[in-house]
């Protein structure tokens, strides 16, 4: 709030009203409703529902399929986060270093940001096509009978590769801007203090980039959890079958295909809790960021 605030009463209320109304109708009402219905069991024929307490949750946590999906989600998130961050960091460090063509490289490395996840998934289908896909042939060279949509590991691999590809631009943009905000003189001081370029990177540049990296860690986990929906949906070509899926996809399948309202709501609530934990974690890190400046 500003020191020189205006004292008007009705204007700010009028200004806030549209946002508050939209949030109330499309955020708080649905979120509360999800919380509530996670304690009810929906009649399969649509005749009302019964209060079942925490049963939806307990059956969820006892469900082997759910556990398997949760485990896949963890592995998927870790792989996507690690590889997209590592590749993007390498590219950002190089792009920050070169003088010639720096702008062209930046454009070429970031433009994929604008491609929608399901479109990226569709490109994945072309590359992992069972009979003609170049990447399918690549994996077959190593004796892996790669069958997208049929073989669990093949589908999972394709999902990770496409998800990493789609996320590199965001990480690249943030790493590059992080690198560029390190004062030139600090790097020059390091050049006088340390002759090894590798040493300088790990002892000076990387620690100064750590706040950006922590921040991106959260962004990437959130991405892997939620924004990969389109990629996953495209790559399994609408047939869940035996295919790997993430927790969010499971919410969608159970809620819209299986009509298991209570179970799906309970899953939503579990995800909400997960996001809350991530956010608290993020705020802790944000506090740490401030210490450097």
């Amino acid at each position: 709030m500003k020191r020189a605030g205006f004292d008007n009463i009705w204007l700010p209320v009028a200004l806030l009203l549209p946002q508050l109304m939209i949030i109330a109708i499309f955020f708080y009402w649905p979120a509360g409703w999800a919380l509530q219905s996670s304690f009810f069991l929906q009649d399969p024929f649509g005749f009302g529902s019964t209060y079942v307490g925490a049963e939806n949750y307990t059956s969820l946590l006892g469900n082997d399929q759910y556990k398997r999906i949760a485990w896949f989600t963890v592995v998927f998130s870790v792989l996507v986060t690690f590889f997209s961050l590592a590749i993007a960091l390498l590219l950002a460090v190089k792009a920050d270093k070169v003088l010639r063509g720096a702008r062209t490289y930046r454009t070429l490395l970031m433009w994929v940001y604008a491609i929608a996840p399901p479109v990226a998934g569709f490109l994945g289908i072309l590359f992992f096509d069972q009979s003609t896909g170049p990447l399918t042939k690549f994996f077959q060279m190593f004796g892996w009978d790669f069958k997208l949509g049929v073989d669990y590991n093949a589908t999972a691999t394709a999902m990770v590769i496409v998800a990493v590809w789609k996320q590199i631009p965001v990480n690249f943009i943030f790493f590059l801007s992080g690198l560029q905000s390190i004062p030139r003189s600090v790097r020059e001081a390091a050049m006088i203090d340390n002759r090894s370029a590798t040493g300088r990177f790990w002892q000076v540049t990387f620690p100064l980039l750590a706040p950006t990296a922590f921040f991106l860690l959260i962004i990437n986990i959130t991405y892997a959890l939620f924004d990969t929906f389109g990629i996953i949906d495209a790559l399994m070509k609408g047939e869940p079958g035996n295919n790997p899926m993430t927790l969010v996809y499971k919410v969608y399948i159970d809620g819209f295909r299986g009509n298991d309202l209570g179970g799906s709501s309970a899953q939503s609530v579990v995800l909400m809790a997960l996001v809350l934990i991530l956010t608290v974690f993020q705020f802790r890190l944000l506090e740490r960021r401030i210490h450097y400046t």
């Binding site: 009402w29 999800a34 939620f226 969010v248 919410v251 809620g255 819209f256 939503s268 909400m272």
Partner: peptide, 19 residues
């Protein structure tokens, strides 16, 4: 307003659809 930052649409997709 800022609590809404915590929960992306994907998490509350089903109830939002119902609404």
């Amino acid at each position: 307003i800022f609590t809404t930052l915590l929960l992306p649409l994907e998490v509350r997709i089903l109830p939002s659809y119902e609404a």
